[in-house]
Nucleic acid binder design. Sequence first.
DNA 1: CCTCTTTTGTGATTTTTTTAACAATAACCG
DNA 2: CGGTTATTGTTAAAAAAATCACAAAAGAGG
Lengths: 213, 213
Amino acid sequence: MTKETDESIMVPAAVIKRLPKYHRYLEELLNEGREKISSQQLGEIVGVSAPQLRQDLNYFGNFGQQGYGYNVKKLYNSLAEVMGIQQKSNMVLVGVGNIGQALVNSRDFEKRGFYLSAIFDTNPKLIGLEINGLVVKDVVELKDYIAENDINIGVITVPASSAQEVANQMIKAGIKGIWNFSPVDLKTPPNIQVENEHLTEGLLRLSFKVKEE
Amino acid sequence: MTKETDESIMVPAAVIKRLPKYHRYLEELLNEGREKISSQQLGEIVGVSAPQLRQDLNYFGNFGQQGYGYNVKKLYNSLAEVMGIQQKSNMVLVGVGNIGQALVNSRDFEKRGFYLSAIFDTNPKLIGLEINGLVVKDVVELKDYIAENDINIGVITVPASSAQEVANQMIKAGIKGIWNFSPVDLKTPPNIQVENEHLTEGLLRLSFKVKEE
DNA sequence: CCTCTTTTGTGATTTTTTTAACAATAACCG
DNA sequence: CGGTTATTGTTAAAAAAATCACAAAAGAGG
Ligand SMILES: NC(=O)c1ccc[n+]([C@@H]2O[C@H](COP(=O)([O-])OP(=O)(O)OC[C@H]3O[C@@H](n4cnc5c(N)ncnc54)[C@H](O)[C@@H]3O)[C@@H](O)[C@H]2O)c1
Ligand SMILES: NC(=O)c1ccc[n+]([C@@H]2O[C@H](COP(=O)([O-])OP(=O)(O)OC[C@H]3O[C@@H](n4cnc5c(N)ncnc54)[C@H](O)[C@@H]3O)[C@@H](O)[C@H]2O)c1
């Protein structure tokens, strides 16, 4: 009886959280020219136990080979595929303020296949301005732009008070996922994915741990 | 037999992760003038079950009152105390680039008692420049500055290749906690607390969830 | 081609986290 | 001021996650 490769089996959130880390370290190993690696060794590098690593990977397939280990390049590509970064995806960003501009200026994520396609704001002083090759558009164009340009991820970097409204517009226009930097828990239908970067929460957690020590 | 208020009892990481969220929603309730709230109601707002909320809070004390619920202001202040944001703390930031400047310009965290005391870079073009009231200092002054100015948190917003080196300097100078934005897992002694903002990992997780859907 | 070693994939076990249940306690009301 | 209701704090049960342990598979070396 062969193992079901049934997608319907729920992948635990704890596993999903670790995937990008595995990917990052595999990229490093690949750049160092490493060819193969055992779950033991990779686990030590990443900071998880070997059985956990193996169990995590086996949610998605059998990428290893007994008596050999894992081929670094193959595993790297497999994880990239699992995370959906093999085919490029297009994003829009709304809120060209402090954080928004930082993201637009660095575009760190383009090397991983996430392209910033357009950026939006309400501020007339910003609209029309060019930032790192992208001209700031008026947010009234947002809905049409998303619908017409195969955009699947929206980045929200507006003040908390406008975040939900911007999210609503994105969703109406057919966005699939939202990368949210506003300190707000967006209300979204279940088929819309949200990932929050609540930076202030991170600082408070740090404060707690410092105090506790 | 009274309950031990022993600090040595380990607070689960899962609980620590939720504390800032409780604090944020309590702040909203406080601003709305809400006086009391039950675990049931607060749980619904925050998105956790009522028993979990009660159990979480009871790691730190008995803040509620049977038959009444929780006093919003009291609970808010208690949580602030638990997280160590009653007394202000001083931070330094190293790496005045895209992300660094965004943080310096907004200084969102000052209203929660985290003061940015000085900012550092290696780039001669930046050193001496004033950004939102702070003059960029040369990073060679970092160690002395931390040691002499009661700094307990360091913010790292330098490229990945320099992050560990910057962390080492901070630690040598006596920092207690590091808020790290570089895509690197810093090697630190156990008495140094680290909180990572690995933004790219968030985007990859989002990508996974979008693809899975 | 056979033996020995390595290392995976996975079922069983343990630990951690979450949820449920309820007795104890305090507010509220007549 | 006593009964009723609301709601906590806490113990017990269930669920989820991590770890352990080992049989099965593949490579390495003679
Ligand atoms: N900057 C930080 O250090 C920091 C830290 C933690 C959290 N955040 C959060 O990130 C978000 C952005 O912060 P920031 O410092 O970049 O703010 P900002 O004020 O610099 O930028 C916000 C931008 O959004 C635009 N905007 C406002 N309403 C809009 C709307 N409805 N549609 C389109 N654009 C709109 C504004 O014109 C502005 O350009 C905030 O929610 C903030 O709480 C920021
Ligand atoms: N900007 C983004 O959108 C983004 C997204 C995800 C992650 N990050 C991470 O955040 C970090 C900073 O990104 P950024 O875009 O702000 O980079 P940046 O290049 O704009 O800024 C880095 C700054 O650090 C300074 N620096 C370099 N080495 C230093 C040293 N040893 N001591 C002191 N200063 C030093 C540089 O002079 C520069 O000013 C990087 O690690 C990046 O990977 C950034």
